[in-house]
Amino acid sequence: MLRRKISKKSYSLVTEGALYRERLSEYNITITAQDLGSSSLASAVTITVKISDINDNSPVFKEASYIIYIRENNGPGIKIGKVSAIDLDLQQNAKVIYSLLPAEVGGLSLLSYISINSENGNMYVLRSKDYEQIREFQVTVKAAVIVRVVITDENDNAPFILYPLQNSSSQANDLVPRSAEAGYPVTKVVAVDGDSGQNSWLSYQLLKATDASLFAVGSQNGEIRTTRPLNERDNFKQKLLILTKDNGEPPRSTASMLNVLLADGFSDAFLQVFEVPSEEEKDGTLTTYLVIALAMISFIFLFSIVVFTIIKECKRRNISEKYNSVCGNFYDANGFPGDLVGASGP
């Protein structure tokens, strides 16, 4: 505030306290001079006092903190938001320069993720973000404003089936007694989704079945139940193809195969699994039997030829030996040719 102080010898205008340009940048002061005559005369003048600026104000951000949402799997160089600060000073004293304070995100320097335009506060993403690895991080802009960057989820994960196992060499079989009535709980498809929010909401659908009228799957919980009583005409082995789909845009899905065995009693059910093979198993077993049979026939044929050859050779040798033996005895008994020659010598 300004107050006029006047003395007879001099006139001065002084302040009574500190002046703040930010509160009032100028003052219009009217000074009146009046004489002391019997008919007083006066004259007035108006003085404008402008308050000069000093850099006594720090920049102030429009928000105490910011939240910026960016989509995962984003491309680099995309503008993701803006921070804005004002300074109550004037001209050069009011110019705000933006910068990021050093920090780390996921073991890497923050400056490799985010950049800021020093002139206008625009913020840009420098590399792709994966929601499943980094869901949010904080950036501190110089002048002490905190910017919270939140990664929004993209539907980049298909449902993963926990049960029934799809990577096992021996498929799991769920057993159902033939005495089961409609609504009997057979099993449950268990799946998870690595995404978040509605991208991880799962629904289930029966795509294909050996007998589509026999089973139904709960669309929200994946529970599989019978829809009618079982009878003797129902195939012992039932195959179900279940589709698990998420609620993302676009949706992603995974199909899983489930085997259901119908049994009169659980004690003999496992025996029947091996006694009643599937059509594919039957074809494979028949082929194996044919190969073994052909190999056995070939072996027996070759063995027979070898035995026949050996027997024939043995018979030939026996006949030859008997012939030589008979002939030798005959000549000896009659005295020739060896005995006759020896007898007629002298």
Rank of each mutant, 00 (worst) to 15 (best):
D153I: 06
S40N: 10
T309I: 11
G222V: 07
P164T: 06
V141C: 00
Q171R: 12
R225S: 12
A42P: 05
D246Y: 05
V276D: 02
T227A: 02
V186C: 06
I134S: 14
F236A: 09
L261I: 13
G183M: 05
V273G: 04
K282R: 15
N221S: 03
K8W: 01
S344P: 00
D87A: 10
P229L: 04
R135F: 08
E321K: 13
K129F: 07
A42T: 11
P277H: 01
A255F: 00
L214D: 02
T48M: 08
T152I: 09
K5M: 06
L88N: 10
R228L: 04
V276Q: 05
Y27L: 00
Y20M: 02
I146P: 00
V147A: 07
V49H: 12
Q272Y: 11
K9D: 10
S304T: 14
N117F: 02
Y98W: 12
F308W: 09
V217R: 01
Y163C: 05
Q91G: 04
Q198N: 08
T210D: 01
V192E: 12
E16M: 09
V273Q: 13
L100T: 07
S99L: 11
F330E: 10
L36E: 12
G218L: 00
L110N: 03
P251D: 03
K142V: 14
S115L: 11
Q166T: 13
G284C: 03
S298Y: 05
E223H: 04
A143F: 14
D89M: 09
F330N: 11
I114W: 01
S325E: 10
L230I: 14
I78R: 15
D234Q: 05
S344A: 12
Y69A: 09
S304R: 10
L271P: 04
R23Y: 01
D332G: 10
E119A: 08
D153F: 05
Q133M: 11
E132F: 04
L206S: 03
D174A: 08
N117G: 10
V341G: 08
Q138L: 13
V150Q: 15
G183D: 08
R21F: 03
S200N: 13
S298F: 13
K282E: 08
K5P: 00
K322P: 00
L262P: 03
L286R: 13
A295T: 11
T287L: 12
K82Q: 15
T309K: 14
L110V: 01
V149H: 01
N28W: 07
Q133Y: 01
Q272W: 09
A182G: 05
F336A: 11
Q238L: 09
L165T: 09
C327H: 15
Y204D: 00
D53S: 15
L126F: 03
R127D: 06
E275M: 11
L214G: 02
Y20V: 04
E119D: 14
I310N: 09
A216F: 02
V190F: 07
V217D: 01
R127N: 06
R127G: 05
R148M: 10
T32W: 01
Y20G: 02
Q92V: 15
R71Q: 14
G17C: 07
Q91D: 15
R252G: 02
S58A: 15
N334W: 15
E321T: 06
N334A: 04
Y204A: 00
S344L: 14
Q198C: 02
T48K: 15
V192F: 08
Q272I: 08
F236N: 05
A295V: 06
I297T: 10
L2A: 08
T46H: 08
N28A: 08
